[in-house]
Structure formats: structure tokens, C-alpha cells
Amino acid sequence: MPSINNNKAQNFLFCFSFMMILSSCSSMNVTEERVYEGGIKTVEASVAEVSELDYETKAIFANATVFFEFDSYNLTSKSIQTLKSVVSVMNQNENIKITLAGHADERGTREYNLALGQRRAESVKDYFILNGINSSKVSVKSYGEERPVASGNDEISYSKNRRVEIN
């Protein structure tokens, strides 16, 4: 018991002297400053005109969209059915050039989804090249999660948004 009391006393002494040192050292802070006035300029981006496809090509690819599982860029057997018909149309018409736009659902981070959309579009491009389409006829881009077709927050909407559109 006495030793504990002794400790308490020591602690108190230590704290007290520490506070004395602190207060004797502390000096008042004096500051003067001016609010920084940075200007801001608004810029408007001029959005590039997207060249419209001719009516015939549009009609052929009207429903050419393939869908994917969450965080996946593997083609499903249903996708391959769609792609097969696109390949046969392209083989019949040498002049057709296509753009593959990859998309993702809103879950997960935006940049990862942008990369995922790109991978999905690349998977489709790989399929075309394997099936004899010249790679110069296929261009690829991604919109990530920025261009959803279904706006709901449920699996049905998500599954509609995980897609590659062929145009």
C-alpha cells in the first residue's frame, strides 16, 4: 500500500512540474493572414459530332448487343450466337466497319469498370478476329458504367448494363 501512495505522489509531482514547464514555456501565438482570392474560369467542352451510320448498317446491327456476368469478360454461348450472325453479315459485305462499345454495371469503381468495359469489347473483337474478320475493320472503346441502358438498382437492370454494343 505505501508504495502505491508513493507512486501517486510521484506522478502528481511529475505532472505538476511538467505543467509548470509547459506553462512557463508557452508563448501566445500571434498570426495575421489574408484570404486567398483565386479566380475560376468555366470551360465548355465541344462535343465531337458522332458520324451517323448509314441506314442499312444500322438496321443490321440494331439488336447486336452481347451481355456478360459480373466482373467477367467471358463470352457466353448466347453471346456467341449473336456474334456468329454478325460475322456472317460482315463476310457478306466487305465494306462494313464496326465499333464495339463495352459497358459495365454501376457496382464497383468507375475506373475499374472502364477497364472492364474495354476488356469485354476486346473479348468480342478477339472472337471476330478468330473468325476471319480483319482487325482493321473493328474498333474498340469503353464507356465503363457511364452509359447505363437500365437505371434500376437491381440484378435485372445490372445484367442489361453489362454489355458490348456492336455498331
Binding site: 508557452s26 501566445m28 501565438n29 500571434v30 495575421e32 493572414e33 484570404v35 482570392e37
Partner: peptide, 24 residues
């Protein structure tokens, strides 16, 4: 606790940036 003034400060600004002045 120490019964002391620990800081004295002055910020200059303009009336239509009163928000910024307050944040300072």
C-alpha cells in the same frame, strides 16, 4: 485552465468572400 490568452489572430478579407474568411 491556464487562464491565459493563447492566440491572437487577424484575417483580412473582402465582404463577398465572408465564407472564406470564416473558414480561415
Amino acid at each position: 485552465v491556464s487562464k491565459k490568452k493563447i492566440r491572437t489572430s487577424k484575417v483580412f478579407g473582402i465582404p463577398n468572400k465572408i465564407k472564406q474568411l470564416s473558414h480561415y
